[in-house]
């Protein structure tokens, strides 16, 4: 199977999934529509009507981790091709990546010491 066929299959799978969902919705729709009633469309909050909108500038207190995550996620993009040829390259690959990971890990330790690894 060529690569292109494989991705065509994956696209077909995606479209098929959307089709499945639409047919489930159609089936549910055949049973009836939701009846509009007072307060029914207000988000449920434990028996209290809360009509205030909640879309706000949300305080994500994990932003320290999030910044470190960016660095690590970039690094992982390099790791995959390295991992595949690792045994071929042998000790050199271990040393190459060892130095890279050591620096990255030192970065993590530095961030840790500066208080990045906590809820801000």
């Amino acid at each position: 199977m060529s690569e292109l066929t494989q991705y065509a299959i994956l696209l077909g799978l995606t479209l098929g999934t959307v089709g499945l969902v639409l047919s489930i919705y159609a089936l549910a729709r055949a049973i009836g529509r939701a009846r509009a009633e007072p307060a029914k469309d207000v988000p449920a909050t434990a028996g209290t009507l809360a009509r205030d909108p909640v879309w706000v500038r949300y305080h994500a207190k994990y932003y320290g981790y999030a910044l470190l995550f960016l660095a690590f996620d970039m690094e992982m993009a390099f790791m995959y091709p390295w991992a595949v040829v690792y045994r071929e390259e042998g000790l050199v690959a271990l040393l190459d990546m060892g130095v890279f990971l050591a620096i990255l890990f030192l970065g993590l330790l530095y961030g840790w010491s500066q208080g990045a690894l906590r809820r801000q």
């Binding site: 909050t45 434990a46 028996g47 209290t48 809360a50 205030d52 949300y58 207190k61 809820r119």
Partner: peptide, 30 residues
């Protein structure tokens, strides 16, 4: 500087005593 929301947690919140009326002001999830 963020925006805070008032979220009711009661009187019928599954994790709290029934009938307890509480409104929490949330800054993110704290």
């Amino acid at each position: 500087v963020m925006e805070w929301i008032d979220a009711p947690f009661g009187p019928f919140f599954p994790g709290l005593p029934g009938g307890l009326q509480m409104v929490l002001t949330l800054d993110g999830d704290s």
